[in-house]
């Protein structure tokens, strides 16, 4: 990605990824949602989401970081800071 994406673009991209990986409708993927408690995403699906997000946003999301990304908003912030 040539230009740094906006938070809205990151959220929309994550929503598409979550829909593909976990079958959660993209509309449901909003910033305040918890991956585990609200979207019912398990630890292995989080890895798949991270791998796809890395490709899409040209960012590194180490496994050790995944536990800190509790909400969709946390992930948007992380990608925004590190992309």
């Amino acid at each position: 990605m040539a230009e740094k994406p906006t938070d809205e673009e990151i959220l929309a991209g994550l929503a598409e990824i979550v829909e593909e990986v976990a079958g959660v409708e993209a509309d449901e993927v909003t910033a305040e949602k918890s991956f585990v408690d609200d979207l019912d995403i398990d630890s292995l699906s989080m890895v798949e989401i991270a791998v796809q997000a890395e490709d899409r946003f040209e960012v590194k999301i180490p496994d050790a970081e995944l536990a800190n990304l509790k909400t969709v908003g946390d992930a948007v912030t992380y990608v925004s800071k590190n992309a």
């Binding site: 630890s43 292995l44 989080m46 890895v47 798949e48 991270a50 791998v51 496994d63 995944l66």
Partner: peptide, 12 residues
């Protein structure tokens, strides 16, 4: 095993 790391490696 470090489940998440092994899963990432195996799937990619």
């Amino acid at each position: 095993q470090e489940g998440q790391s092994v899963f990432r490696w195996a799937t990619t």
